[in-house]
Amino acid sequence: MLNFLLQRLSVAVAVLFTVALIAFSLLHLSGDLAAAIAGPEATVETIEHVRHQYGLDRPMPTQFFQWLGSAVRLDFGRSFYFESSVRELVWQRMPITLILGVVSLLLALIVAIPLGVLAAVFRDGVIDRFSMFISVIGQAMPNFWFALVLILVFAVELKWLPVAGNASWKNFVLPSIALSYHAMPALMRLTRSGMLDVFSADYIRTARAKGLPGFTVVVKHALRNAIIPVVALAAVELGFMLGGSIVIEAIFSLQGLGQLAWDSIARNDFPVVQAIVLIIAVFYIALSLLGDALSALLDPRLRKNG
């Protein structure tokens, strides 16, 4: 188990380094940063001054390792726009995105797993068809459009919930639903197909031949094995949600990381964009690791050797 995690960890570090390198180079490929910072009206001298001030005249590898060195110490430099520490900016916004992501994932799982199990148990029945219908819509419909429909129905017409902002828990309800509906179909379909796979396994026949109650067979013997890939997918989905919340946060004016990234891209605020890309990548990798670890914890065969 320890070996298994150490291996994955070393791979994760390598992946992270690559992401950092790409994030760094992409920004430098997007044009002359010094000119962008100095603004459209700036003279050549001003631009050169900015270039020197920000250290942009140093060799690329030096710049990269300096940036990476401080990023490791959680120092992402100063925002061009806010003129304040990027770390603090990110720190303020992070909880909102995290809450949104985690709540959405839990919501998706609460719906997806029971629905997937029932769909598999009553294969080709009403529940199966209903859940298939729901999930096809969920996968086909863009989530920004679904978010707008939610706002229109529950906030504008029914006035049950606020339209935008992040004042209370009520503000999180609609964004969470919108975000979770995008992850739910994949989780549900995976649960369903996993359950159907497991139902034809020999050990399920054994469990039935032992005269165990149906619920025990389905939950203890089938779901326990079918859920392993679902857990791994859920971890990855959470990563998607943290990265993909940009659109949802923009629609609901939630002041999260996504919104910050969106604004910073528009403002050419590169230190912030770099920091957010790196942070999302760290989350993503950490979640994949977590998924692997959870799978290993659930599957005794992975626990021993890996």
Binding site: R208, A209, K210, P213, H221, R224, P300
Partner: peptide
């Protein structure tokens, strides 16, 4: 019938490698 299965009438299958649940 569930009371009969496993209690009065038990079964042994062909494939010992796959007939036991790997997770328990």
């Amino acid at each position: 019938m569930r009371d009969v299965r496993g209690k009065q009438m038990a079964m042994i299958f062909q494939e010992p490698m796959t007939s036991l649940n790997p997770s328990w």
